[in-house]
Amino acid sequence: MVDFEYKQHYTVKDLEEIVRILRAPGGCPWDAEQTHESIRRNFLEEAYEAVEAIDEGSAEHLREELGDVLLQIVLHARMEEEQGRFDLDGVADGICQKLIYRHPHVFGDVKVSGTGEVLSNWEDLKRKEKGQKTNTDALSAVARSLPALWRAEKVQKKAKKAGFDWPDVSGALDKLSEEIEELKTAVAEGSNIEEELGDLLFSAVNVSRFVKVDTEQALTKATDKFIDRFRKVEAQAKAEGRPMEEMSLAELDALWERAKHA
């Protein structure tokens, strides 16, 4: 039995102690053998599940998922503490220092006219803090681990700050049309397909910026719509007493059109 004080309610400090016990000799073998790399995907999954709870509008679900995210943070901090590099307090100190530095209009004597100036100052301070001397440095600093559409959008926004952008959506739409034709050629020739498809997606993200649509959300909704219509197609096929796999593409297209207008 471990030496641990059981309570009705626990705090972040208690979570730190629980994680310490789990990773210590005599604790949990699975927890003890985990590394930053082995639970990297867990961190991403927990963050996405927290976002899903936000989308649901469920406070109780969000509380649970934020707890799972917090566990990941405490685990990673504990691993570093075991190596003598930093602990959870060091993590908190770092973000506190950053927030104070990047809010000189709150913790200093800088005057701002509104949110736009706050964001502009934030980016300028961030570049100084990160030692980003060129615009390319700022683009390169966008995390490669981000979802590709999201990363493309952030890179494009930073390029815009350097003046590298079309004046309106028409330029982005023309480029999108151009990339569609180039993809068609690549497919016909059987070469450079991945590159041309990437250019097409990048151009689609450019259009989304101008029309102020979140590409990740738009694609998520499109996928949900596809699933909903597919469900209707499958139900119609079942009602006709025929498996989808035995129907022709023309028959399935006809069911799809009916599902679109159902």
Score class of each variant (00 low, 15 high):
His76Gln: 12
Lys157Ile: 15
Arg40Val: 08
Glu181Lys: 08
Ala53Cys: 00
Pro167Arg: 06
Ser248Lys: 11
Asp87Phe: 01
His36Asn: 11
Glu81Ala: 06
Asp3Glu: 04
Cys28Gln: 14
Glu45Gly: 11
Glu82Gly: 14
Thr215Ala: 15
Leu88Asp: 02
Lys133Ser: 14
Glu80Gly: 11
Thr136Asn: 12
Ala250His: 04
Ala250Leu: 05
Gln83Cys: 06
Ser58Thr: 01
Ser145Gln: 11
Ser58His: 01
Ser38His: 01
Asp124Leu: 02
Val169Gln: 06
Val142Cys: 05
Leu176Asp: 10
Thr223Asp: 13
Phe107Leu: 01
Val106Glu: 00
Gly241Trp: 07
Val233Asp: 09
Ala32Tyr: 05
Thr223Ser: 14
Leu75Ile: 06
Phe164Tyr: 13
Ala162Ser: 13
Arg20Asn: 12
Ala47His: 11
Glu246Thr: 11
Ser191Met: 05
Thr215Ile: 15
Cys28Glu: 10
Glu46Ile: 06
Val187Cys: 03
Asp124Arg: 06
Leu255Asp: 09
Asp68Ser: 10
Pro104Gly: 06
Gly163Glu: 02
Gly171Asp: 04
Gly90Arg: 02
Thr134Ile: 08
Glu179Thr: 10
Ile21Pro: 03
Arg78Lys: 15
Glu178Cys: 13
Leu252Pro: 13
Lys184Asp: 04
Arg209Tyr: 12
Met244Thr: 10
Val110Asn: 00
Gly198Lys: 07
Asp224Met: 14
Gln217Val: 09
